[in-house]
Design a protein around this nucleic acid. Structure first.
Length: 888
RNA sequence: GGGCGGAUAGCUCAGUGGGAGAGCACCUGCCUUACAAGCAGGGGGUCGUAGGUUCGAAACCUAUUCCGCCCACCA
């Protein structure tokens, strides 16, 4: 087979990602390697990207999420799958609107001044300018998405899907409209869903306020954290079985400061143990009170407006900010003698997840999704195993939320987003919900007004797995790639996104949107703190890519990804893995410079010329190939990365490359040289393949330098494990060689012999249990690695060589004659320390063996192992003792 | 209030019933022609605490302490 020329000249002396990464990304795009085939004989594998916000810039969360997806996609491509990785971005309603509003603010303008149409135009301009930024950043990271399919949640096609879903759900009575108490952000001027409220524990005050009865017969005391809502009180409630407050039911109290007379009612919501057991009821400003109000038909009096300012119902407090009003009302209550106490109280307060403003429970007309029926199907699918969470523990979290799900408020009083496809007839009040703008009302009127509101961003994201594939049309993409294979995302959006995708997928596709949900950790800083701009601990992945390269970042993230644990990232950690890339780089350079002159077909390995080390590395490679395949298949990214790290560095570089040197120099003859060259060629081929999904750029560059037949590594076929004949025996032999070599190095270090100095001679006395042949056949290897001139094999009954230090195992004894360098006392001390360590060990084991329970109940092989260990320890002790005696 | 995760070497973490490990940091010696972003050797841990199960526990069970996170209609 004609081999491409190796490109050693092109490789810098140390690993430098700069000239490599952009070049290869371009080549992959030109080659079309990322393109999915709508119809194919190959088995499908598909992932839809969690669409980043168009406002966004790549952060470490994206970097991790997309690195893992890329690893999966690249692996599957090499394994022969027809891979679709669907990319795109999310319009991110509130977030984007806020960003554009801020740029307007800088120009001294507001969106209201601009008007709706002009503002939306501004947002689109902004989107065109910045929307592609994050896509380019994903490319820098190496993401192998099928970019020709890039989608945006407000594309015409996706918008059509949104309208279709809305209309269908409305017709099935799964979407309804009504006036309810919702979460309102007074700054963003919109409703929010329950999930979009961040609850934070804050130090507040709990006020006791006295409400006098209207008949002058006494008073009742209630507790509140929000005195400003007193102005909207329309009742007081006590628990029906609360004996001490029973007598209050039916009485009427006077609301302080406003003088309104309100009834005292009974309701199960009240906790009789809290405070006095009496609660003030403000149906228009508290979610609980709202429900009580419904049950008792109470008046809803709004006293706070949509800006968080007291309105005309607040009397003299009108036009005051809600927090100023609170201060003033407390002062006034105190002056009126109605404020009985004021205590510190820590409680949770809702904040807007976008702008952090304190949320106001606000009574307004909104659209809702009836979630209960959808959630039932959802949970059934997860229970049936149609959808699997990895790690499994997230299933619990998921169920916990689904079981307590409440209706989803989907209308937003924003301008940027999908306009709700509902029209109101100005003449008859009819509500028309339809995909297309209706021409007129049933009543004949043409005075139709479309609903001003837009949909929650997450409504369109929920359709992402099928809307991106062309739904509601029946496309080949849907047929081939739906359900997708796996969803990779962070736990922070399980409720926002994952659960809702499952709902919509099951409802409209009758199949779940994905089979596996791989939930990865959050990336935190080295101290475990969440990264945030305000803390100044943000690591920008683009800086990292610039400094260390995308591969170093990818490998670090993958290596630190353990199932179910957060990642603490620091630059020093990235350095560790960058060092690895350099190691791999140089190992490859070493191989290349030694196969450059090869005149034979490198693909043909002459098996008769293979020695222990060759069989060992080939069989270890087979082990690693099998293990790596298994780990990637099970989403064990960290384990997979570390497996390759350890194999390449600890086995290939530290042992095999060193052992290959004499043969490559020609010391062992031409046949051995050719065989070793072929082994290197074969090992690197698979190592580069196995590492390619994790570090695509570096491996691709090296692959081209080796000149393997397939010109693009990403197009090569995933390796299958092939253990050579004699591989298992070679592993045992290498194990022995490694132990002996380490022992020799140890003895040299003991007398501080410099590494460049060759030790004249070591004497090896091989005992019964040892693999004598492994040692005598590979004596040259031991000499090479331990830098020893000669190894003298002593007969088992030989006397100990004089003036030597020793290393003794149960299988062999190693003597290093050091002549005058022998420090007798030091050597005795060392041996005695060794002896007492063994003695302790032996005592422990014999204690175990003396235990009848252990001998009787432990498995036979365990007992046997302990017996052997004891025997060995005793043998070693006996020999060490002899040695000590000899020295004395 | 409910739930989840964690506690192992100075630091960050592997290790799910029979040998306590890795990387970084530290100490010693080396610029040995692939790599000083490197090589070789070394010191360092009563595995949070208390019980239990077991012949045997870092691992399994119970309780407990501390740390982190999520959820909840905490007036």
């Amino acid at each position: 087979m004609e081999r491409n020329k190796t490109g050693l000249e092109g490789l810098s002396k140390s690993y430098d990602p700069k000239p490599i990464e952009d070049k290869w990304y371009e080549k992959w795009l030109d080659d079309g390697i990322f393109a999915a085939e709508p119809k194919s004989e190959k088995p499908p594998f598909s992932i839809v990207i969690p669409p980043p916000n168009v406002t966004g810039s790549l952060h470490l969360g994206h970097a991790l999420d997309n690195t893992l997806q890329d690893i999966l996609c690249r692996t599957k491509r090499m394994q022969g799958y027809n891979v679709l990785w669907m990319p795109g971005t999310d319009h991110a309603g509130i977030a984007t609107q806020n960003v554009v509003e801020r740029t307007l603010q800088a120009e001294g303008k507001t969106r209201q001044e601009l008007g709706r149409e002009a503002f939306i135009e501004r947002v689109w301009e902004w989107k065109e300018e910045y929307g592609s930024r994050i896509i380019n950043q994903l490319k820098k990271l190496g993401a192998s998405c099928d970019w020709a399919r890039e989608r945006f949640t407000m594309d015409e096609g996706l918008s059509r899907a949104v309208r279709k879903v809305f209309v269908d759900l409305y017709e099935k009575d799964l979407i309804y409209r009504g006036k309810y108490l919702i979460n309102w952000c007074p700054r963003c001027q919109t409703a929010l869903s329950d999930l979009e409220v961040d609850h934070k524990e804050l130090d507040g005050k709990l006020y006791s306020v006295r409400y006098d009865f209207d008949d002058g017969s006494g008073s009742v005391t209630v507790m509140t954290t929000r005195p400003e809502t007193i102005l909207g009180d329309t009742a007081i409630a006590v628990h029906p079985r609360d004996e001490k407050n029973r007598h209050l039911i039916g009485k009427r109290a006077v609301v302080p400061l406003v003088g309104r007379v309100v009834p005292i009612v009974e309701d199960n919501m009240v906790d009789p143990e809290f405070g006095t057991g009496a609660v003030k009821i403000t149906p228009a400003h508290d979610p609980n009170d709202f429900l009580v109000g419904q049950r008792h038909n109470l008046e809803q009096i709004q006293v706070i407006d949509d800006h968080g300012v007291m309105n005309e119902n607040a009397g003299k407090y009108a036009r005051m900010d809600r927090f100023d009003a609170r201060t003033q009302i407390v002062r006034d209550l105190s002056e009126a003698g109605l404020l009985l106490s004021e205590t510190e109280h820590r409680h949770s307060v809702g904040h807007c997840y976008r702008c952090n403003t304190v949320i106001e429970p606000y009574l307004s007309e909104q659209w809702f999704v009836r979630t209960k029926p959808l959630a039932e199907a959802d949970m059934a699918a997860v229970r049936a195993g149609d959808i699997k969470f990895i790690p499994e523990q997230w299933t619990t979290t998921y169920f916990q939320w689904m079981e307590n799900i409440r209706d989803w408020c989907i209308s937003r009083q924003l301008w940027w987003g999908h306009r709700i496809p509902a029209w109101y007839c100005d003449d008859c009040g009819e509500v028309l919900v339809s995909m297309e703008t209706p021409s007129g009302c049933k009543c004949g009127s043409t005075n139709l007004r479309q609903d001003e509101d837009v949909l929650d961003t997450w409504f369109s994201s929920a359709l992402w797995p099928f809307s991106t594939m062309g739904w509601p049309d029946e496309t080949p993409e849907l047929k081939t790639f739906y359900p997708t294979s796996v969803l990779v995302t962070g736990f922070d959006i399980i409720f926002f996104w994952v659960a809702r995708m499952i709902m919509m997928g099951l409802e409209f596709m009758k199949e779940p949107p994905f089979r596996d949900v791989y939930i990865h950790a959050l990336v935190r800083d080295e101290k475990g703190q969440k990264m945030s701009k305000s803390k100044g601990n943000v690591i920008d992945p683009l800086d990292i890519i610039d400094k260390y390269g995308a591969d170093a970042l990818r490998l670090t993230l993958a290596a630190l990804t353990l199932q179910g644990r957060d990642i603490f990232l620091s630059e020093s950690r990235i350095e560790t893995y960058r060092f690895f890339l350099n190691k791999l780089w140089n190992a490859a350079r070493f191989a290349l410079m030694n196969i450059e002159d090869a005149q034979h077909d490198l693909d043909a390995i002459d098996e008769t010329s293979l020695r222990t080390q060759d069989l060992w590395i080939l069989s270890r490679l087979a082990d690693v190939t099998e293990e790596m395949t298994r780990l990637l298949d099970g989403y064990f990214f960290g384990e997979a990365s570390r497996l390759m790290y350890d194999f390449v560095w600890g086995e290939l570089c530290d042992w095999y490359l060193e052992l290959s040197k004499p043969a490559l120099r020609g010391d062992e003859g031409d046949a051995r040289k050719r065989a070793t060259q072929s082994v290197l060629y074969a090992v690197f081929r698979d190592v580069l393949k196995l590492l390619h999904p994790i570090i695509p750029f570096a491996t691709e560059e090296l692959w081209s330098a080796f000149g393997y037949t397939q010109s693009i590594l990403g197009r090569s076929v995933w390796p299958t494990p092939k253990c050579p004949d004699g591989g298992v025996a070679a592993k045992t032999a290498m194990d022995t060689i490694q132990t002996v070599v380490r022992a020799m190095r140890n003895l040299r270090a003991e007398i501080k012999m410099p590494p460049q100095q060759t030790a004249p001679k070591m004497c090896l006395k091989v005992k019964h249990a040892a693999d004598t042949e492994a040692l005598s056949n590979n004596e040259d290897l031991a000499r090479l690695l331990a830098k020893v001139e000669a190894i003298e094999f002593l007969p088992a009954d030989a006397v100990k060589p004089s003036k030597s230090i020793s290393y003794i195992t149960s299988e062999w004894e190693l003597y290093f004659p050091v002549g005058e360098l022998l420090d007798t006392e030091k050597e005795i001390a060392r041996l005695e320390a060794e002896f007492s360590k063994l003695e302790k060990e032996a005592q422990k084991i014999s204690g175990k063996l003396a235990n009848k329970n252990f001998v009787d109940r432990a498995p036979a092989d365990v007992v046997e192992k302990e017996r052997l260990a004891l025997e060995n320890a005793e043998l070693q002790m006996a020999r060490i003792k002899e040695n000590i005696a000899g020295l004395k």
